[in-house]
């Protein structure tokens, strides 16, 4: 298997910093924002985005986690059950602007499940999607509002985001399919 590093630590940092600025610009500051990440890596990225935005705006934006597992559409066809992760909605999401964060946007099914999960907690003013990597191959009409990097891939390739908090290193890898 061949592995290419497509984003290194610096590139990830710059991408997150740009996304943070885009979020602030589009929402005219940090008011009413809530940043929610999809565990495990989406949640760590959400915390980093919160930190960057807080530093720029002097805010303390609520940050939390949305575990989409219980809302997945493939539970009945998987051979074993995926492990449940943390659900942590820190405040009422009614009339809030939600920034949903994940590491990789692929089929869009996780994001669909995550949005369904969110709707069970209230009625947000809006949901905006931020991802570190968009690798294409959508199976649902879902589009990211903020993208760290577009990485065209074949379906057979694997995209791995590794970040310090969970993997000890910051990088994005593309693994080519074994021949």
């Amino acid at each position: 298997m061949k592995t290419n590093v497509v984003m290194d630590e610096k590139a990830i940092e710059r991408a997150l910093s740009r996304i943070a600025h885009e979020i602030i610009e589009r929402n005219r500051g940090g008011e009413r924002l809530v940043i929610l990440g999809i565990p495990t890596r989406g949640y760590e990225l959400a915390r980093r985005l919160k930190k960057i935005i807080d530093e720029i705006e002097g805010t303390d934006i609520p940050v939390g986690a949305v575990d989409a597992t219980l809302y997945r559409d493939d539970l009945a066809i998987k051979k074993t059950q995926p492990t449940l992760k943390k659900m942590d909605i820190p405040i009422s999401i009614d009339d809030r602007k939600i920034i949903l964060v994940d590491d990789v946007l692929f089929t869009g099914r996780t994001i669909r499940a995550g949005m369904n999960a969110l709707m069970d907690f209230g009625r947000p003013l809006s949901i905006q999607l931020a991802v570190l990597v968009d690798r294409g191959h959508r199976e649902l009409p879902i589009k990211a509002d903020y993208v760290g990097k577009n990485i065209p891939t074949s379906v057979k390739e694997g995209v791995k985001v590794r970040i310090k908090e969970t993997d000890g290193v910051n990088e994005v890898l593309v693994e080519s399919a074994p021949r």
Binding site: D67, L70, Y71, T83, L84, K86, M87, F121
Partner: peptide, 22 residues
């Protein structure tokens, strides 16, 4: 595994809408 899964499920019963489509 049963215990850690149950820990995650406690959150569902604490919600206002205590139901998931699983």
């Amino acid at each position: 595994l049963l215990l850690s899964t149950a820990e995650s499920f406690k959150e569902v019963s604490a919600r206002e809408i205590k139901k998931v489509p699983t």
